[in-house]
Design a protein around this nucleic acid. Sequence first.
DNA 1: AGAGTAATCCAAAACGTTTTGAATGTCAAG
DNA 2: CTTGACATTCAAAACGTTTTGGATTACTCT
Lengths: 334, 334
Amino acid sequence: MPVTLKTIAQKTGFSITTVSRALGGYDDVAESTRQLILETAQALGYQPNAAAQRLKRLRANTIGLIIPTFGPRFSDPFFSELLAGIGNQSAERQFDLLVGTQAPGPNEIDAYRRMESGRVDGLIVVRTRQNDVRIYHLQETGMPFVAFGRCDEAQDFPYVDVDGEVGMQKMVQHLVDLGHRRIGYIAPPPELNFSQHRIAGYATALKMNGIPYDAALVIYGDLTQQSGAAGAVYLLGIDPPLTAILAGNDTMALGAMSTVRERGFVVGKDIAVGGFDDVPDAEYAHPPLTTLRQPIYDIGRQTCDMLINIIQGIPLSEIQVLLEPELIIRKSTG
Amino acid sequence: MPVTLKTIAQKTGFSITTVSRALGGYDDVAESTRQLILETAQALGYQPNAAAQRLKRLRANTIGLIIPTFGPRFSDPFFSELLAGIGNQSAERQFDLLVGTQAPGPNEIDAYRRMESGRVDGLIVVRTRQNDVRIYHLQETGMPFVAFGRCDEAQDFPYVDVDGEVGMQKMVQHLVDLGHRRIGYIAPPPELNFSQHRIAGYATALKMNGIPYDAALVIYGDLTQQSGAAGAVYLLGIDPPLTAILAGNDTMALGAMSTVRERGFVVGKDIAVGGFDDVPDAEYAHPPLTTLRQPIYDIGRQTCDMLINIIQGIPLSEIQVLLEPELIIRKSTG
DNA sequence: AGAGTAATCCAAAACGTTTTGAATGTCAAG
DNA sequence: CTTGACATTCAAAACGTTTTGGATTACTCT
């Protein structure tokens, strides 16, 4: 028998209207009345019914996030940090966080559709892709969303991201400054928007240093540690030999490090390795990984904040936020 | 202007009642009527309003999970897998998953309270502790819950867990069979219920092999890689020297491996290292980590299933499930 | 004394769905 | 022809909250 406004009304002798107005902070309730009602509500442990509020207000006060979990062995530190940021910020803004788990594929759109019909007021979209069907769907339905990931030429939407191009330029420049000229790159999947920017940065920096871009030194991974390990197997087999391997994210870089060591090389001495993200594992890797820091937790908070502002009709100071990653030099590059 | 039952009613000429009954599968609607209503609903893209359904049914069709994210650098592969299991199963059972992020501490109970008031029908509790205030709170409020974690003597509730005691016995026996007699242990925090079972298993197996239990060879970590690394620093400083280091979870074991290598030892040759969990990182570590496998993804699915069954009044075949972990022997023990 | 204003309180509608307890029409049996 | 049963459809209540548009009373000013 949950406590409702009716319960408090019966207990205090005021109407449901007065109780609602007292609890809601309206100024047309006598102070003595308000105090009595507040004390009674507190004593009875009253909690407003979320369903009733949402029905009346036509608002869910909930945001949605679908994590692209690719399978039972899903493990990506990126999402741990992101979820921590989003979760903390949504709680701070008094919004609920509805989480789904669905990898890209034929069922992906269904997962997004299931979050509709009054369940969420907006969505955070991660790892935006070229001609992303999720984006088209959300734009078509008018569902508010903010992306952690850039848009491409065909789609335009609010986002937070880091400038992968600038970041990769810094990383390549760092390696060139250390004397490297044959630098391999394990790129994220090409359909991901940020992949192209990171490859562009890699290519531009090589060019700026008079080093020809060689497509043979680039292999695509799928952001997992295994694909990084496999990518390094390929890259280490190239002749003339490479002296550095970069990866489009830390997880692949850590995988690449495993292969480098497995092949008998010393990471940072024989082969330099660099990543992107600066997930916590990067710092405690052996050796610690040189990487480009994107503040994943803060980005989580920021995309959440932006989304809730859009939902609440609060104008954004910036609709598209591109952050500059910071080069974190650790022992994996010497 | 969302499509409602009223819209369909106006379009088809039937009442809201008939539309609701047709869509709800009642058998007192003429077949031709039902077909017309279903087709119209489909054509209009009708989605039932979740708030209205929940208000009327007095049910949220949502389960809650609060992830103990300890800070902005939160990264625990255990929760990635767990979330994937819970998320997939809740979608399969057509329940929403509400996620909060809150570390243990003074605000923890508030996070649980915020999930009440009609927001969720039940909760999954992870990493149960001695005299867990969360458990007391949920039992007091009558909120259904299932734990991923055992109960202690003072509390009794439905759970799924792995038998840490049996697991650690297998791991210690494996090391003893390899000739190890001085085995250090980096234990999880003592207040966690599973920590005691794992220490008990470690102590029992030593005793069964005639090796005295030495409290000086046990240090507590906090389940993070850093605490594993620091624990190994302590353990490697013990005289006479240890030949093996065990950790209460893989993440600490991986941290310990870093320290072992940093000190110039060869993991698996000079110092054996073993963990618990078998998170994906364990497999791809360098060297791959010997560990005890608990099927985290499957446990996620199972705790979710049990919780939804409790919510729906479906009797559980087993109220407390204790699984036997499987010893996965990899190169980190030689 | 009367009129106007302000303070305080409340009834009822509304949100969109589900369910109950009907109403209505048709058909068959007596 | 009448009655009862069955099939099909529907009005209204209910869920719990918020908000609108009042009603009532008291006080002040003319």
